[in-house]
């Protein structure tokens, strides 16, 4: 079965805060100018963070599960 997992690439993150501000579930936080996933269980995998991140530093990745 295929599932999606929230992934970040913090070296690409410029700390703009857009992902955190528009996340409908307040999953994300900016700490020292970098994105942090603070509440992964609340994530509804809507992908809005990925769509709006100007720096491709957060996205939903397909992962395979047994």
């Amino acid at each position: 079965m295929s599932m999606k997992k929230l992934v970040t690439e913090v070296t690409w993150c410029k700390g703009c805060g857009i992902c955190a501000a528009f996340c409908p579930r307040h999953v994300l936080e900016i700490v020292n100018d970098k994105v942090v996933i603070k509440d992964e269980v609340s994530c509804i995998k809507c992908g809005q963070c990925e769509l709006r991140c100007p720096d491709y530093a957060i996205w939903l990745q397909e992962v395979d599960h047994e």
Binding site: K14, G15, C16, G17, I18, C53, P54, D55, Y56, A57
Partner: peptide, 18 residues
């Protein structure tokens, strides 16, 4: 060539992804 040179929050990056 990434990460790109655009400023933090500049929308050029998200429009290019779109």
């Amino acid at each position: 060539n990434l990460p790109h040179i655009w400023c933090p929050g500049c929308s050029h990056g998200s429009v290019m992804r779109a």
